[in-house]
Nucleic acid binder design. Structure first.
Lengths: 342, 342
DNA sequence: TACTCGCACTAGAGCGCGCTAGTAGAGCGC
DNA sequence: GCGCTCTACTAGCGCGCTCTAGTGCGAGTA
């Protein structure tokens, strides 16, 4: 009695068995007026008995609208998991379905997006997309598009991101306050938010009169990148160069990598060097001493993303919007005064 | 010129514009014999011009078969990300589409599965499902089902998992060889593979004459659980009880948590205590000193899962099968001889 | 010439639903 | 009796595609 080979019951089966028309079953399942309470109950009972459940492909085809949001994310990006967790309940609340498609090694973002479009998603929610200029605008022609994390200057789509500059500024002010001067920044390459974070780092350094100390090390939003940077710093130390006293990483994963490499190299965090991350993904609570980081509220970002998508679906005339959420520095164990400070 | 409100072109539009019948366009897009090379090119060119792409909902409805595999995973489970990464290419190779549905806090596995079924997935690939007995059998009636990681004794579905007992045995033999005697195990509760790992731990302890030292600490497959266990051990030490010399964690995430809590508590790994994980998820390379762990080959497991699903779809008569992959101990930096050993 | 065969192509039914336009019947006022 | 409204229900088209059963035609065969 395996499912393979057997066909699933349809609305017609339910209708026959309950002695009503197909249309009535449809009414009951859409929870629309036009059926008596008694009939509703009977239909639902029969449906349950024969294991009927609506076929969303057919439903979607007939309805013309799919009421489905497609979410593109990248595997292994922990912050994306946090976002996904927030997207489901909000979508459900608004009566939308969610389809996930992952980008990964060997599976490009474009491919992941095509899959979503092929499944007739009405809107795309792109988590931290690594888009080439123009691609977002191209997508916009094909579906409502919301970009989370990555703000692309001219693209006329909705954005949800945090006020990167503010977050970085908070972190920098905090470090300088503690007495740090040699603060390096590992940037996130083309990753979401990187450009703003980099700019804001530079601005903060200049504002604090630390222009000569500015140093941006190219990187990515991965542990690997953090580890490499950590190793680079260790190698420099071994050649007699001074370690910086603080590292502002591109995100939490990168910060974690730096921290690991440094710990392995016998450098004590935060005594010898402070490490600050970005995201406050759930990783940050998990480090032995807790990661000092800039908190982005994943749930709130997810809610904005879903609402932007749904509102635009219901009113296509809307001007492109932008939700800029205020991030907040969270001080934990990886930061402290620089070595040699009082 | 936003997508919202506009409707996408259909096969009929392509047919009109190319001056052929709808059926012919269908033939071209399915890459089936019955159209001349010349016509194929013209149809494809026209389709490209007007931005047509097949609607998989309609296609799926008409075809009767969806050729879609549904994958249920749990957010934040890093090993699941590894598996997903392996599932896509194999599915694509066999001509199947993949739909993802996540379980998360507030979104049960059952709910995630219902979503997949509603989207007409022909087969379900459940990653490390936390199933109640009987649920798998119920699912089997509704779709081809493959369970990855979690072996449920009587359920007549396909399983892919690693030879948990072997993996644990390797790890235990290795630790005992190094001279460890007080080896505790943090189990994974109802998590995939936990029961076998626990059993095998006990068996190994008995086999090595360490029965009095057996200690299983209840836990979960999360960092949090590892941290709590680490704190528990530290608290015991502070009360004057001896620390174990080795910890065999339920999985890598848990091992990472233990390691973090211990490091925070000033316990040196591996000098004071050895920590061994399970999975070899990409986390394990990332720890400062590298995690000693039992490697499960995610890509191979993913390939088996996809093949099992597809083969059963194409031949429903198949007896339930089981792929048991041999895990392999990977020794990295978190393990060594117990304190006081030569 | 009459026929078969293969190729390129088409007509049209049907997949499982949603939805519009309709009907049948009960209840009401006049 | 009539027309009216309201509720409970039904008939049947159409969503965009696949697929079976064709048609028309030129080349090959007897």
């Amino acid at each position: 009695m395996d499912a393979a080979g057997r066909q699933r019951p349809t609305m017609a089966d339910v209708a026959d068995r309950a002695g009503v028309s197909r249309a009535l079953v449809s009414i009951v399942f859409r929870n629309q007026p036009g059926a008596s309470q008694e009939t509703r109950e009977r239909v639902l009972r029969v449906a349950d008995e024969i294991g009927y459940r609506p076929d969303s492909a057919a439903r979607l085809l007939a309805r013309g609208r799919s009421r489905t949001l497609g979410v593109m994310f990248t595997v292994h990006q922990t912050f994306h998991s946090d976002l996904i967790e927030g997207i489901y309940p909000e979508a459900e609340r608004l009566g939308y379905d969610v389809l996930l498609s992952a980008a990964a090694e060997g599976r490009s973002e474009a491919k992941a997006v095509e899959a979503l479009l092929g499944h007739r998603c009405e809107a795309l929610i792109l988590l931290g997309p690594d888009v080439v200029p123009g691609y977002l605008d191209e997508l916009r022609q094909r579906a409502v598009t919301v970009s989370v994390g990555h703000r692309v200057p001219r693209a006329r789509v909705d954005f949800v991101h945090s006020a990167e500059a503010k977050g970085v500024r908070q972190a920098m002010d905090y470090l300088v306050e503690l007495g740090h001067r040699a603060i390096v920044h590992i940037d996130g390459g083309r990753g979401p938010g990187s450009a703003e974070r980099r700019r804001s780092y530079r601005a903060a350094m200049r504002r604090h009169g630390l222009e000569p100390e500015i140093r941006v090390i190219p990187g990515e939003h991965t542990e690997q990148s953090g580890i490499e940077t950590g190793q680079l710093l260790l190698a420099e130390r071994d050649r007699g160069l001074p370690l910086p006293t603080a590292v502002l990483a591109g995100n939490d994963r990168c910060a974690m990598g730096v921290w690991m490499a440094l710990a392995r190299g016998g450098v004590d965090v935060p005594r010898d060097i402070s490490v600050v991350g970005y995201d406050d993904s759930h990783l940050s609570h998990l480090m032995p001493i807790g990661l000092t980081t800039v908190r982005q509220d994943a749930v709130l970002m997810a809610e904005y993303a879903v609402r932007f998508a749904v509102e635009r679906l219901e009113n296509p005339e809307l001007e492109p919007r932008e939700a800029v959420l205020d991030p907040k520095l969270v001080v934990r164990g990886t930061s402290g005064p620089p070595p040699g400070a009082a």
